[in-house]
Amino acid sequence: MKIDHIALYTNQLELIREFYCTYFDAKSNEKYVNPRKGFESYFLTFSTGARLEIMQKDAVSISALQPGEEANGWTHLAFSVETPAVVDSLTDRLRMDGYTVAGEPRTTGDGYYESVVLDPDGNRLEIVADPT
């Protein structure tokens, strides 16, 4: 069994789509629109085949959490990159483009080299180089 996709709601559908396509090399399908339900979505596919569904719906409220704030439930999405140098360069690129770096690149206690950045909605993203 494998996870088919992960989904998230946003009120900035096009901005979120552009963010993941630009910085994480996602490929987007054509927008799905259901005007009766006030719903729109894209599936973003990454090079490994993992998919992220981004959705916008008129009746969905914005989270009460502050951007980057942690709470129970899903806490982050991690993207694996080839080397620590890629972690550093992507983190620096995102910082230079105005995105929040919530955790500077570092080696974790379990041996991963990672940073934490926030997407335009404040969702936490880890950029991780596997220790193997």
Results as ranks from 00 to 15, higher is better:
Q56H: 08
A78T: 03
G68A: 06
P67C: 07
R36S: 12
I3P: 02
M1E: 14
A71Q: 11
M55C: 10
A85S: 15
R124Y: 07
N29T: 05
D4H: 15
D119T: 13
F79Y: 11
Y23D: 03
Y42D: 03
G49R: 09
E40N: 11
L65I: 07
A78G: 08
P35L: 06
V86P: 01
G103N: 10
I54V: 00
E82F: 12
R124T: 02
K37N: 13
Q56V: 09
T100I: 10
M96Q: 12
T108F: 11
N29V: 04
R93D: 00
Y20S: 00
N123K: 13
E53Q: 12
Y23R: 04
V86G: 02
R36E: 11
L44N: 03
K27V: 08
E126Y: 01
S41Y: 01
T107N: 09
A85T: 07
Q66W: 07
V116S: 03
T107K: 13
P120F: 13
S80K: 09
E114I: 03
E70A: 05
Y42W: 09
D58N: 14
N72G: 04
G103V: 06
T108P: 06
N123E: 04
P120W: 13
S28G: 14
P120M: 11
A7D: 15
T75G: 15
P120Q: 07
T75A: 12
V86S: 04
D97L: 03
V101I: 10
F24T: 02
L8G: 05
Q12E: 14
P131V: 07
M55D: 07
T132F: 14
D92A: 15
T45D: 14
G73R: 08
G109I: 11
A26M: 04
S47G: 08
M96V: 00
